[in-house]
């Protein structure tokens, strides 16, 4: 029984890793006080999603999960006839785009952070809120 669970767990360890990374990322994004750390958290979150997507490309592993009804775009044959494992390239392409988007987001965020630091001299959110309150509108 336990073995079966272990087996199931390790067979899809990449998905579990993605889940863990995603949660670490979300936690950091929401809970951290430092604006820069929030950005780091966001990047970790995005990385987790990329990992998840790329893992989807592994058709074989999906079929053992029982959700592999996906129509892979290149090869039309069902799994029995195919008789071999292959990796679906489409998620990789998507994630290339995703990485570009993530990089762009990070760029904008970093630019903003520089401006914020120039304006307030700090990146701690609570300090910035205090400073804003002192300055008024």
């Amino acid at each position: 029984m336990i073995e079966a669970i272990f087996e199931k767990f390790f067979q899809h360890y990449n998905f579990w890793a993605a889940v863990v990374i995603i949660f670490i990322g979300i936690y950091a994004t929401i809970a951290k006080n430092n604006l820069f750390k929030k950005l780091l958290g966001l990047n970790i979150f995005q990385t987790g999603i990329f990992l998840f997507f790329i893992s989807l490309g592994d058709i074989g592993s999906l079929e053992t999960l029982g959700i592999g009804d996906a129509t892979p775009p290149i090869i039309w044959k069902p799994a029995e006839e195919r008789g071999y494992l292959y990796v679906n390239p489409l998620p990789h392409v998507l994630i290339l785009t995703g990485i570009v988007v993530a990089a762009a987001t990070t760029c904008v965020a970093l630019a903003l952070l520089i401006r914020i630091h120039k304006e307030y001299g700090t990146l701690e959110e609570d300090e910035i809120i205090e400073l804003e309150a002192i300055r008024g509108d």
């Binding site: 904008v108 304006e119 959110e125």
Partner: peptide, 14 residues
């Protein structure tokens, strides 16, 4: 606006 924008960026990206 900087902080407003940054907040929006974080939430929007999430």
């Amino acid at each position: 606006a900087l902080r407003a924008s940054y907040n929006y960026l974080i939430l929007g990206s999430i």
